[in-house]
Computed example of a mutant assay.
Amino acid sequence: MSTDPPSAAHPDEPHRGGIAQRLNWLRAGVLGANDGIVSVAAIVVGVAGATSDTGPILTAGVAGLVGGAISMALGEYVSVSSQSDSEHALIAKERQELRDMPDEELDELTELYRARGLSEQTARQVAVELTEHDALSAHLSMELNIDEDDVVSPWHAAAASAAAFTIGAILPMLAILLPPPEWRIPVTFVAVLLALAITGAISAQIGGSSRTRAILRVVIGGALALAATYGVGALLGASGVV
């Protein structure tokens, strides 16, 4: 029988800690890029529908990119800060309880393992051995499903969200600015919808869902957003308002 640890015996399986956190970050990155693609594409296509001048299109696109990236970063920072503060408070509370009433905490851990189906004797032995090894980690994992070393940083989350949005936003900016004026709209539509299909496929792969449904959702939604903003821009441009 092999004595290798699970992570060595099955390197392709998610035995190592933090897999859920990494998947959440990857999913957030894909969604952030998707937001950058759609929102900035909608802005530049709308402006391009009203005018073919490069200056207004570039200005609107850059403003949308910067504003969107800051908004995404701020939203992610606030959200993750709340989560991080809650987790740190729970960790401090558990550490205090272990210091003040270790016997009660050992009994609690034993009961948790009994609730999982272990016998009284086995549950007690597991609780004792885990407590001797690392009492805080044992309680955090069993009671709260928290890893003290895996609490996400709000600053890292904000930076990742802003970077993902920016990367996604660069594509429609290039697609609308590089081609000749008469090709800007069709090239942007094609480039954006292809990019959305890719992000839809990646998100489906991460979540284990149907690729076809995921791709159709984002592509149809993106196409509707582009058509709507282009229509508004063309209408305003034709009416002489802008």
Rank of each mutant, 00 (worst) to 15 (best):
P154V: 03
T131S: 08
S81C: 03
Q125H: 13
T110R: 13
G17H: 12
D134I: 08
G49H: 01
M1D: 09
G75Q: 11
A160K: 14
L58Y: 12
S239W: 09
S239R: 06
G200K: 09
L58V: 15
I91V: 15
H133T: 12
V241G: 04
E94P: 03
G231F: 04
G18C: 03
T54G: 01
D134F: 03
A50T: 00
I37R: 01
P179N: 04
G222V: 02
I170S: 12
S2V: 02
G207A: 12
P186C: 06
V45L: 06
L171Y: 10
L136R: 09
I91M: 12
S81D: 09
P11K: 08
A115Q: 14
E182M: 02
G117S: 07
G231T: 04
I185C: 01
A204C: 05
V242K: 07
A69Y: 13
S2A: 05
V47M: 04
A42G: 14
V151N: 08
R116L: 06
E129F: 10
G17L: 07
H139A: 04
G231C: 06
V218T: 13
Q83C: 00
M1H: 12
V190F: 15
T59P: 01
I57Y: 00
H10T: 04
M142A: 06
P6E: 09
L140I: 08
Q21T: 13
V62P: 00
N34H: 10
V80H: 15
I43V: 14
P186E: 09
A157Q: 08
P6G: 08
G117R: 07
N24Q: 13
I220C: 06
R124Q: 07
N145T: 08
I37Y: 11
E94C: 10
A127N: 06
T188F: 02
A164Q: 11
E182G: 01
V45Y: 07
